[in-house]
């Protein structure tokens, strides 16, 4: 069941012209031009600039240094994979990048703004407009439909209802779930839930997408599917930082940063970036050669 999701979604993406157009048509949003200059001025900065970032957890008498002086710059449009052994501080780093937590020391500049100087409300707004989260455990609201889940960030942005739903629908179409709008999370497969979570992360058009082991709870095939979506979004210019344990997954990124004991131990470009979409196609083509089902037909639809 899970493994069948992707082609269905891919086919829908192709057959639905609105979905293909979804991202670019957002250009028509009123007063886009007005705000454009704002963003151009930001262009001078990296999306993420972290200097000597440290985080010490205090538990009673003992203190645990989870990060011990991390320096990282991430430019606009990059796709970064963060790797490292368990307990090396990856999640701690992601929480700081996502402004869910405050560092013990060091600086974190997001889009040219030093985050630690901002008020709690300003940080909440920052998370709302500039950051999209994708978690290992999906973290969807069980009571809400896929559409409502995706529309939620827009609610906190104070957007009117019709606009919220229009954008949420489009975000769900982008991840290939245009036909699952009214499903609740428990009515969706793990891969589909993660796609809803990605749609939610996207819906506010963030400048940064943070994903902490987004494929950790998924099988390889569904994980590839998620990576295909992330690569596609990165292709549109979205900056992505992703944590993974798997070298296979990290190979879909452009750059790999390795953590160990709260420090960056290596930071290098991926020489041969893999394409999840291509690999999926090959996989499916091979299966159809073995005579396995009607999926290749759908792929041809997409090509048409």
């Amino acid at each position: 069941m899970r493994t069948d999701d992707a082609p269905a979604g891919a086919a829908e993406r192709a057959s639905d012209p609105d979905a293909r157009d979804a991202v670019s048509s957002q250009r028509d949003v009123p007063d886009a031009r007005e705000r454009l200059s704002d963003h151009e001025s930001e262009g001078a900065h990296a999306v993420i600039s972290v200097r000597r970032l440290a985080k010490v957890y205090r538990m009673g008498q003992t203190s645990i240094p989870a990060l011990r002086g991390v320096n990282v710059e991430v430019a606009r449009g990059e796709f970064v994979a963060i790797m490292g052994p368990s307990g090396s501080g990856k999640s701690t780093f992601m929480n700081l990048l996502g402004c869910l937590d405050r560092p013990t020391s060091g600086e974190y500049w997001l889009n040219g703004r030093e985050v630690s100087r901002l008020s709690a409300d300003a940080i909440a707004d920052l998370r709302n407009r500039h950051i999209g989260f994708v978690f290992q455990g999906f973290n969807l609201l069980a009571r809400a439909t896929a559409l409502a889940n995706v529309a939620l960030p827009l609610l906190y942005a104070g957007m009117p209802r019709e606009e919220r739903e229009r954008r949420a629908r489009r975000a769900l179409r982008i991840v290939g779930l245009g036909n699952r709008l009214e499903h609740h999370p428990q009515q969706l497969s793990g891969g589909q839930q993660q796609r809803v979570a990605i749609a939610r992360a996207l819906v506010n058009s963030p400048s940064l997408l943070l994903a902490d082991e987004p494929t950790g709870n998924l099988d390889t095939r569904t994980g590839m599917d998620i990576m295909a979506i992330l690569q596609r979004l990165n292709g549109f210019g979205l900056t992505i930082v992703l944590v993974t344990h798997e070298a296979d997954i990290a190979a879909y990124a452009q750059r790999q940063i390795s953590f160990r004991d709260g420090l960056v131990v290596s930071d290098q470009a991926v020489t041969q970036q893999r394409s999840a979409t291509d690999e999926l196609q090959e996989l499916l083509a091979r299966r159809s050669a073995d005579g396995a089902g009607g999926e290749p037909v759908r792929i041809r639809e997409e090509q048409a």
Binding site: V23, S24, Q26, R27, V29, P30, D31, A32, R33, E34, R35, L36, D38, H39, E40, R76, G77, R129, L154, A157, G158, M159, E163, R167, N204, S205, P206, S207, G235, F236, G237, L238
Partner: peptide
């Protein structure tokens, strides 16, 4: 993409 992304960012900014 970059121009597009900028425009998308502006979409949220409008609200």
């Amino acid at each position: 993409a970059p121009a597009r992304r900028a425009a998308r960012g502006a979409g949220a900014g409008a609200f």
